[in-house]
Design a binder for these strands. Structure first.
Lengths: 333, 333
DNA sequence: CTGTTAGCGCTTTCAA
DNA sequence: TTGAAAGCGCTAACAG
C-alpha cells in the first residue's frame, strides 16, 4: 500500500498526501483535506516505505551502534538502553550490530543499511572508519576526556585506552591507600578482552610506579575456583607476597574470591580483591566485592548528544572523563 | 560516488557495472571489462547505496531482532551472538533494536528500516505483529515445541510461556527429588520480568501439584542480602516450613544465598536454592549454585533457520522443545 | 557481450 | 490550496 493509493482513495494528489503525512511546514492544507488523507491512510493501513524515503531524502533515521562480538553483554546493555532512549528523543532509531571479527569488513552493512551515523565501539579499524566517512556517514567513537597520560588531546582511540587506564589506576590507588604494597592483577582468559584488560593493567602499573610500589603481578584466571586458587597460591608465595589484587572485572574478582575460599583464606585479610563493573552478584558475595562502577548511562547520554551534534554539523560536546568511573568500597578490600 | 560514476570511469554502461558488481547470473561479461569495472569501483571507493538497492529490489538483507528493554542483557547476548553468526552465513545482517515500552508502537521503525524479517522476542503485541505482516514483513516469534500443558499445538505465545513453565517444573522437580516437600519461589523485583517469572512460578506450581506437594510459596526479593534475609525468615517460619526455593534466576538465587549467610544459615542444609541461567557468578558462589541452563545458542540457530525458511516460503523447521533447558546440579541443592 | 530504458515509492520545487 | 513532474541510485527486462 503506497502513498499513491492513499492519494487515490482520498481524492487528492500524491504531493498532498506527502504534505499531510509529514506535516510539511509552509503548506496550508485545509482541515477537511487533511482529515480525509489521514483517514484514508489509516483505513488502508499505509506505512511509508523506508528505503524510498531514505533514497529520496538522502538520509535515514537509523543510528547504528557497532560493537565487537565481545562477551561484554551485561555492561553494554545499560549503554544501549540509555542510548536508545536518548536517540529516540531526537527522532533517531538505534540499532545494534554485533560485528563478528571474522566477518568481511563492512560491505554487508553498507549493503543493508545506510545509517545516519555510526557509533563505533571498538568494532571498526581505521581503514573502515575512513571508508564510512568517505561514504558520508559520520562515525562517532566513544570518546573520553583525557585527564593525563601519553596520548594527550581529546577523543580518539587513545582516549578509550586512557579511560580504561584510569580504571586500573583507581583500583591500584584504592588498594595502596589501604596499605597494600605489592599488588596482583587478575587478567581474563579471553583474548577478545585485551582492548580492555591491557590498559587497565597498564593503569595499575602507572599508579604503582607513581606511588613507588613494585609493578603489579599479572596472572590470567579462568572463571573457576581451581584456576583462581592456583593464582592465589602464586600471588601469596614467598617470592611475591602480594596482598591485594585488582581484577579485570567483577566476574574475575568473584573467581579470586572463590579461589580464596577454596584455600580456606578470606578477603581482605589474606588477599584484598577489587573488581570492575558493579554487577549484582558482586554485592551479594561474601565478602561483598569492592568494585569500580562505570556510569554507562552517562556515557550513553553523551554519545547521543555527540551523534545529534554531529548530524547538525555542530561541534562535539565535551566528552566525559574519568568521573564516569567511581569506586564502590565494600568488604573485600 | 554512484554506480554511474563507476560506469563513466570504466567506460561502460551502468547496467554493466551493476552486472559485474552483483555477479548477476546468465550474463557473460568479458574478463577485461569485468576487471576494468572492479578497478574503477575500487579506485573511486564505490559503495552501493543501500536504500536505492532496497527500493529497487523490494527487499533488504536486514533482519531485525526486537527485544523489550528488559534487563536480560547477559542471557540475550548469547542469543544475539549465535543469531548474528548464523544469519550472516545466509547473507543476512542482524540488527537489534531494544524497543522501549513507552515508545510509540512501531511507526519509527518502519520509517527507519525495512527489514526482510522481524524476530519478535516479546516486544510486539498482536496488533503490531498483524500490521507488520500486512506490510509484507514476516514476523518470527521464538517458538518452542510444546511438550505438554494447556496450550497444545506448536508455536505462538503459548509456547513461549510453556517453555518458561517447563523451567519452573524442572526446578521444582529437582527439589522434590531431593526430598523437599514445601517449596518457596523467589520472584524478581521488576515488573518487566513478569512475562518470564509468572510462567516459571506456574510451572513450579504444576510440578508441585503433580507430585502432591503444597503450592510453592512465592516471595518477591530485591537484589540485596537484607531483602533476601527477610524472605528466608518468612519461608523458614513455623507456618510455612519451606526447605527449598526455586529462584527466578541466578541473581535472585545468589541474593537468597546471601540472605542465608546473613542469618548464619547454609544451603542446602537450611534451605536449598536453585536458579536459572547458569551465570558465571553462580558457579563461583559458596555453595556453588545449582541452576537450570538454557541453550540460547541452540535457540539462536533455530531462529536463524526459521528466518531463512520463512524468507524462502518454506515451512518452519520443528522448534526446539524443553531440551533447551537442562539442570546443572551443584552444591546449593 | 553491452547499452537503453523503465520504473521502485517518495519528496519537493514549480505552476496553476 | 493543490497538482504535475522530476528524479534520488539502482536493477532487470529488452534491444542491439
Amino acid at each position: 500500500v503506497t502513498s499513491a493509493e492513499v492519494a487515490k482513495h482520498s481524492g487528492v494528489s500524491r504531493a498532498t498526501v506527502s504534505y499531510v503525512l509529514n506535516s510539511t511546514p509552509n503548506q496550508s492544507i485545509s482541515a477537511a483535506t487533511r482529515q480525509r488523507v489521514l483517514d484514508a491512510a489509516e483505513k488502508l493501513g499505509y506505512t511509508p516505505n523506508a528505503p524510498a524515503r531514505a533514497l529520496r531524502s538522502g538520509r535515514s533515521d537509523v543510528v547504528l551502534l557497532l560493537i565487537p562480538e565481545w562477551p561484554i553483554g551485561a555492561v553494554l546493555a545499560r549503554l544501549v538502553e540509555e542510548l536508545t532512549r536518548a536517540l529516540a528523543g531526537a527522532g533517531l532509531t538505534l540499532v545494534v550490530h554485533a560485528h563478528p571479527r571474522s566477518a568481511r569488513p563492512l560491505g554487508d552493512l553498507w549493503k543493508a543499511i545506510t545509517p545516519a551515523a555510526v557509533i563505533n565501539d571498538q568494532a571498526l579499524d581505521e581503514a573502515e572508519v575512513r571508508a564510512a566517512r568517505r561514504a558520508g556517514i559520520p562515525v562517532i567513537t566513544p570518546a573520553f576526556r583525557v585527564d593525563s597520560g601519553v596520548d594527550g588531546g581529546i577523543g580518539g582511540a587513545g582516549a578509550f585506552a586512557d579511560f580504561q587506564r584510569s580504571i586500573g589506576r583507581l583500583q591500584a590507588e584504592h588498594l595502596a591507600a589501604a596499605g597494600h604494597r605489592r599488588l596482583g592483577f587478575a587478567l581474563p582468559d579471553d583474548d577478545r578482552l585485551a582492548a580492555f584488560a591491557e590498559p587497565r593493567l597498564d593503569g595499575a602499573r602507572q599508579a604503582c610506579a607513581a606511588l613507588g610500589l613494585a609493578a603489579p603481578v599479572p596472572r590470567v584466571i579462568v572463571l573457576n575456583a581451581a584456576s583462581a586458587a592456583a593464582a592465589v597460591g602464586y600471588w601469596r608465595g614467598t617470592r611475591r607476597r602480594v596482598s591485594g589484587v585488582c581484577a579485570y572485572n567483577d566476574e574475575v574478582a568473584l573467581a579470586v574470591l572463590a579461589g580464596l575460599r577454596a584455600r580456606q583464606l578470606v578477603a581482605p585479610g589474606d588477599l584484598a580483591v577489587i573488581g570492575v563493573d558493579d554487577i549484582p552478584a558482586g554485592a551479594l558475595s561474601t565478602p561483598a566485592l569492592t568494585t569500580v562502577a562505570i556510569d554507562m548511562s552517562a556515557l550513553g547520554r553523551h554519545l547521543a548528544v555527540a551523534v545529534v551534534h554531529s548530524l547538525e554539523g555542530k561541534p562535539f560536546p565535551p566528552p566525559p572523563g574519568s568521573e564516569l568511573a567511581h569506586l564502590i568500597p565494600r568488604a573485600s578490600t
